[in-house]
Design a protein around this nucleic acid. Structure first.
Lengths: 368, 368
DNA sequence: AGTTCTTTCGTAAGCGCTTACGAAGCTATT
DNA sequence: AATAGCTTCGTAAGCGCTTACGAAAGAACT
């Protein structure tokens, strides 16, 4: 005899009563409840997870779906671990476990999620790496499983999401650069299906408009999420007929390539060319001059995600404000010296040996 | 009607047969198996996780217990994500889920593990951040749950572990420095209960012995896992009467502080003082001169861990070589220029303003 | 004293799946 | 033709827990 039956036998009462006592149900006398709890502790009883799940139709597990690069672990991983930590700190209070579901490709995401959902393996889902068009959202909505996304999709509505404050940061950085006199400000966004890029670019565009600056598509660079991306951006900029005097990077690691390439060309970041970036990340905290960028508490982000999710799951919802959450995490300025300079270009923006072929911006202008 | 019963009803057969057909049991005719599988697909059937777990006494989940710093997510996190990715790639092949169980403190680890074990929430455990004395190992051994540890404890025997190759790297780095003429080689190890430090220090000691160099306890520095730790080490070294000419760092981030402090004092790493480090990590790949260190595939490490664990779990063990695994992951040299110099000290190792008080080494020598 | 309400607990039917056992039907053996 | 063996499948008893329902017993009312 084991489990709850053992306790019941030991105490000479029924298993039903033991279960009610253990779960804090009302129709148990205080005296027997005390006895039950005491012997439960004495016998080292712990409820069987699967049996509870089966009986209650509840799994006590939350799924966290993230995108992990297939072969090379990307530096992005750091981001998830921070978020992760925050989520756990909330979930553990409620005895919930975290099932991490990493996926490589997009399609993989969908089929994997389908399986997880259909076998009712989780009580709720947290989706990261939200794509611009993300079918997972429809899937979850139609399946009725509570979920939150880290990042917004452009499709689907009425679900809870929490995102980084791309708008706020784009505004602040553009304003900052404009206040220093910059008018031609480049922006980099990563390629791919994740929705960060378009959101950031649009916010950048609006920030320019607010400052009365015309949007120039030639100043938007799609840059791979890698430090080498920064070098290519600089190369492209150097070939332009009317180059920018400042740049806003969405992916902070590109700053490394930007610095490196600028210096190879004798251009000093923060003196001859203003560099700013969206987010801070440990890998770049040793850059010199320090990069002006925004940072956030990954842990708080994780907590917010967990709370927004629990608010949708009946047994836990009481502890949280109701309704769907659509919020941006607060981000705070890490002021560096990488954008100390104004637009005054004494630096040779066009190097002796011309890089690349035709100016991409001019080419596009001709097309339009 | 739902689940397997629905399928059975649809096909006019019993639930037992459906179950056997689905699970590839032998006593089902090929024709009915085909029909079952077909309608299962058509109806989008997926087995209920909890019910299977209850009926089979198996959870299809593996626990991964890691140490997450409480408030500040440490850069160490990157390490886990890589390992993590590798583990998942194996576990998914077998339909196993990964339950990540992060803990802050040591005690926390133990009680948390106790709970997880007693409620039979996992089929196996992978323990990271193994401590020098780790009660979790006894707990798992006595509970009979299969497990592997990432890192060795000094207590307990007969369990599977996989560790980084501290011995190999310590040997190689010491040999390398000795071959360049260095005789006084310092080593840094992080403080705390994780067993890396002692293992690395002992390996370093043996490597010295093999090279006929006497071990000097004054050359062992307990350095916090943070880049500032590197600065303190240099400060201490500079106050020594007979300072080292080279250093082997266990925690690579300390290299940043080491470089910084050395340069503040006009000492150039790789020219005046040889710096090497145990492991490579993304945060330091931009150091200049590049750091001589060793690297490994985190993903392969994760895979090895998963395989070593599955080898112990009956339903999966067939696919793997039997027995307990006690292995070190292969590590390969990333040759930099941070240790290009020999011991020839034209550099002023003792700066004008003397740092700290008495030489710690001398103090210890007096004590003994 | 009879009725109603409350509190406390036992009973038992599930939750969806697995699996030992045995029955039925068939073929192969003597 | 009787026996043994094999294949295929249905039956039903769990796995450990929850929970609707009702029974028992005492308290509180008329």
């Amino acid at each position: 005899m084991r489990g709850i039956a053992r306790l019941a036998h030991e105490l000479g009462i029924s298993t039903g009563t033991v279960s009610r006592a253990l779960n804090g149900k009302p129709d148990v006398s205080e005296s027997t409840r005390k006895r039950v709890l005491e012997t439960a502790r004495r016998l080292g009883y712990a409820p069987n997870h699967a049996a509870r799940a089966l009986a209650q139709g509840v799994t006590r597990a939350i799924g966290f779906m993230i995108e992990l690069a297939p072969e090379t672990a990307s530096t992005n991983d750091y981001f998830f671990m921070g978020v992760f930590d925050g989520m756990q700190s909330i979930l553990r209070e409620f005895g919930l476990d975290l099932l991490v579901l990493p996926c490589a490709s997009n399609e993989d995401h969908y089929t994997y999620l389908e399986r997880v959902v259909s076998r009712s393996a989780v009580d709720g889902m947290i989706l990261a790496s939200t794509h611009r068009v993300d079918r997972r959202i429809e899937l979850l909505q139609s399946s009725g499983i509570p979920f939150v996304t880290l990042g917004r999709s452009s499709t689907g509505e009425g679900y809870s999401w929490i995102d980084l404050d791309f708008e706020g940061v784009a505004n602040a950085l553009v304003d900052r650069l404009v206040s220093k006199g910059h008018r031609r400000i480049a922006v980099t966004v990563p390629p791919g299906e994740i929705n960060h890029g378009p959101i950031f670019r649009d916010a950048y565009r609006e920030a320019l408009a607010r400052n009365g600056i015309a949007f120039d598509p030639a100043l938007v660079f799609a840059t791979p999420r890698h430090e080498d991306g920064g070098e290519h951006v600089i190369d492209e900029i150097l070939g332009m007929s009317s180059p920018p005097t400042a740049i806003v990077l969405l992916f902070e690691l590109t700053a490394i390539g930007v610095y490196r390439r600028l210096r190879e060309l004798g251009i000093e970041p923060g003196k001859d060319f203003a560099v700013t970036s969206f987010r801070n990340e440990p890998s770049i905290r040793f850059l010199s001059p320090p990069l002006t960028c925004y940072d956030l508490s990954l842990r708080d982000l994780g907590k917010s995600l967990a709370r927004a999710l629990l608010a949708q799951i009946p047994p836990y919802a009481d502890a949280f404000p109701q309704g769907i959450v659509q919020a941006r995490t607060p981000m705070f300025l890490k002021e560096g010296e990488s954008d100390a300079c104004g637009p005054d270009p004494h630096h040779r923006l066009r190097p002796a040996r011309k890089q690349g072929s035709a100016d991409a911006g001019d080419a596009m202008a001709l097309k339009d």
